[in-house]
């Protein structure tokens, strides 16, 4: 199973870098296994987010400065995003969910790329971006699915199923398939992008340890930010889609 991996690791001579894929630092809680490194990093990310929020809202002023200014910029950005995708009337209750999606993924991605986790040695596996773990991305994608179902049902009740046969009835199987592909593509897109970034940087560092990987790292930072934006945008647009169609239906009939 790990033929390639071993080939790669025994290939290099300097012990400067090492490539590890698919190794987890397991914690056993009862009968369950959890990935310790993912949870550790995500706690750090959550802690920093909470810390930033506390710092930003500790001393609220009409003319913002410092942390408040930064977080206000973030909030306005998120509001703008939600407003364009969901619509002026309905977006407000969804700002926390979409905003937290964006902030969590963004900080996770950048934490994985910017913080030198390698300095902390774990018994097995290594600390990295939590979004580079399939569990995290599937969790977020499933939550997004639940969120848009919830939005649809709360807005229209059982009439939400009317969406499935909305333009023409034979769309029904496609719409049902879409419900499965949406979280699948969401989770795999994020997971694949982050993992690919880390792997590419890892392979480059393995081959040329100094300076050469820097542009790729910069590209990785960029991609990470865009992926966070895409995840949040898509979640918002799914939610907006689930709530929106009904009005148009009424308008047409």
């Amino acid at each position: 199973m790990s033929v390639m991996l071993n080939g790669l690791t025994s290939f290099h001579f300097l012990p400067l870098a090492e490539l590890e894929v698919g190794k987890q630092f397991y914690w056993h809680i009862g009968n369950f296994n959890v990935h310790g490194q993912v949870l550790l990093t995500s706690w750090i990310v959550i802690g920093s987010l909470v810390l930033m929020s506390v710092l930003a809202t500790r001393n609220l002023q009409r003319v913002p400065a410092g942390t408040q200014n930064l977080m206000e910029y973030a909030l306005e950005f998120i509001r703008d995003l939600a407003k364009t995708q969901i619509g002026e009337k309905e977006y407000r209750p969804w700002v926390p969910f979409i905003g937290t999606l964006f902030l969590f993924i963004f900080v996770c991605n950048w934490a994985g790329a910017l913080v030198p986790w390698k300095l902390i040695r774990l018994p097995e596996g290594e600390l990295a971006a939590p979004t580079g773990d399939i569990n995290t991305t599937i969790a977020l994608a499933l939550l997004t699915s639940l969120a848009y179902f919830y939005a649809g049902f709360r807005k229209k009740g059982l009439g939400y199923f009317g969406n499935y046969v909305q333009p023409v009835p034979f769309m029904l199987p496609f719409k049902i398939i879409e419900d499965f592909t949406k979280p699948l593509s969401l989770s795999f897109r994020l997971f694949g992008n982050i993992l690919a970034d880390e792997l590419v940087v890892g392979v480059l560092v393995l081959l040329v340890p100094l300076f050469v990987p820097l542009p790729v790292m910069a590209l990785g930072l960029f991609t990470s930010a865009i992926q966070a934006l895409i995840f949040a945008t898509l979640a918002a647009s799914y939610i907006g889609e689930a709530m929106e169609d009904h009005g148009e239906e009424h308008g047409e009939h």
Binding site: F188, I226, I230
Partner: peptide, 15 residues
């Protein structure tokens, strides 16, 4: 945004 969506297709292959 659209480049990132297309990029995702490659990433599926990579996955």
């Amino acid at each position: 945004l659209s480049l990132a969506f297309m990029e995702a297709l490659t990433i599926y292959g990579l996955v």
